[in-house]
Simulated scan of single mutants.
Amino acid sequence: MTDRSPVTLAAISGAHGVTGEVRLKLFGEGIAALKQHKTFNDGSLTLKKIRPDNKGGAIARFVEVIDRNAAEALRSTVLTIARDALPELSEDEYYHTDLLGLAAVSDTGEALGTVCAVENFGAQDVIEIARPNGKKFMIPMTKQAVIEWDDKRLVVSKDFADT
């Protein structure tokens, strides 16, 4: 993919304790994936420690955050890394960021709209497509629904295209 925009790996949901730790909502493959990166947001945050919490997220400490007030000030901050810092993927894999903004077309050539979101409600990824008229529809990210994609377009089976 040619898009080099930053990739969001987590978001700070608030402070934890009084010593500057923060709670993280994780996106991606958990703490192990986050630990692979030492700095976030173009080097403005340096990871010092991270551990799981009992709510499915993580508790982290950053070198630059020294107290609860500094931790609270980071609420809603997303932790990003450069796209090229992520490992290359096999042919059938993708990063959500690679799909966002792609033109969606049916396998019969009909323009469907633009990929505006990628969600996962537990079973598999679901692609949300915004039509030019503002209406949206969703399709599962399966081989039956999504025939192919590249860095310019996502081809959807006509059986799943909301017409």
Rank of each mutant, 00 (worst) to 15 (best):
I31A: 07
T19Q: 14
Y95Q: 05
A161W: 01
H96M: 03
F40S: 09
I139E: 01
P52L: 04
A73I: 00
L79W: 02
A130D: 02
F27R: 11
G43E: 11
D67M: 05
P132E: 14
I81R: 07
A15N: 03
V118N: 07
E128V: 09
T80I: 06
D67W: 01
K48T: 12
D42K: 12
T46R: 15
A82G: 05
A123W: 00
R153E: 11
S157G: 01
A60I: 12
K143D: 15
H16G: 01
I31W: 05
C116F: 01
K135P: 00
R23N: 15
A71G: 12
L102M: 10
E29Y: 07
T77C: 05
T39E: 12
I66R: 15
L34T: 10
M141E: 03
A161L: 06
M141S: 07
L102W: 05
E91K: 14
A32W: 09
L26T: 06
G113D: 08
L9T: 09
E64G: 11
A58Y: 10
D84F: 02
T80P: 05
M138A: 09
Q36I: 00
K55C: 08
L89D: 04
S44M: 09
D151C: 03
M1A: 12
E88S: 08
T19E: 14
L100V: 11
T39P: 04
D67T: 03
I81M: 07
A10W: 08
N69Y: 09
A73K: 13
W149P: 02
A15Q: 13
L47W: 10
K49L: 14
F121H: 12
L26F: 06
H96N: 09
K48V: 09
K38V: 11
A145W: 01
G134L: 04
R68M: 15
A123V: 11
K135S: 07
R75I: 03
E148M: 00
Q124M: 13
K38I: 08
P140L: 01
G56C: 09
A82E: 11
A11C: 07
E93D: 12
D107S: 11
N41Q: 10
R23C: 12
A130T: 02
T108G: 14
L34Y: 05
T39Y: 04
F160L: 02
I147G: 00
V18H: 14
A104N: 13
G113R: 00
D150Q: 07
D84H: 09
D125L: 03
L79V: 01
L24T: 11
E148Y: 01
V118S: 08
A123F: 05
F137P: 00
S76G: 00
W149C: 07
A111S: 15
Q124H: 08
A70R: 10
I81Y: 07
A60K: 01
F40Y: 15
E64I: 10
L45E: 10
P52G: 10
K135A: 14
F27V: 06
V126H: 05
E88H: 02
V146A: 12
Y95F: 14
H96A: 08
V65Q: 07
R23Q: 12
V156C: 02
M138N: 08
S13D: 14
L34D: 05
R51F: 06
I59D: 12
A130C: 11
S76D: 13
V65F: 02
K143W: 01
L26D: 07
L34H: 04
R4W: 04
T77L: 06
P87L: 04
